[in-house]
Simulated assay, not measured.
Amino acid sequence: MKKLLLPLMILAIAVGLYEQSNDKPNLYIMSIAIVIFMYGMMKLSAKTPSKHTETEEEQDNDN
């Protein structure tokens, strides 16, 4: 999934930047590119552990 998600995000960024450089950018294409990029970032960052969760667990153990 990660191997498919990363190129899709890069493609969405490229399409968004290309569309933004036009004289009259298409709002729908820009919106779809942003949604795809944000969805990809959400999926990729969901696997990153949070530092805040570790400190909560340590505080619970101390009490």
Rank of each mutant, 00 (worst) to 15 (best):
M1Y: 13
M1R: 10
M1D: 03
K2S: 02
K2Q: 09
L5I: 15
L6A: 08
P7Y: 07
L8V: 07
L8H: 04
M9R: 04
M9F: 01
I10H: 02
L11T: 11
L11H: 04
I13C: 10
I13Y: 15
I13N: 02
A14L: 15
A14V: 15
A14Y: 10
V15Y: 09
G16D: 04
Y18T: 02
Y18H: 07
E19G: 01
E19V: 08
Q20E: 08
N22M: 11
N22I: 10
D23K: 13
D23G: 05
D23V: 14
K24S: 09
K24H: 10
P25M: 02
P25L: 04
P25S: 04
N26M: 06
L27T: 10
Y28P: 04
Y28C: 00
Y28F: 12
I29G: 01
M30A: 15
S31K: 02
I32L: 05
I32A: 03
A33H: 02
A33D: 06
A33M: 03
I36W: 00
F37N: 11
M38K: 00
Y39R: 01
G40F: 12
M41E: 11
K43V: 10
K43N: 07
K43W: 00
L44P: 03
S45V: 10
S45M: 09
K47I: 06
K47F: 01
T48P: 01
P49T: 05
P49I: 03
K51W: 07
H52R: 13
T53P: 01
T53Y: 01
T53W: 06
E54P: 00
E54I: 10
E56H: 10
Q59V: 11
Q59R: 14
D60Y: 15
N61H: 03
N63V: 12
N63S: 11
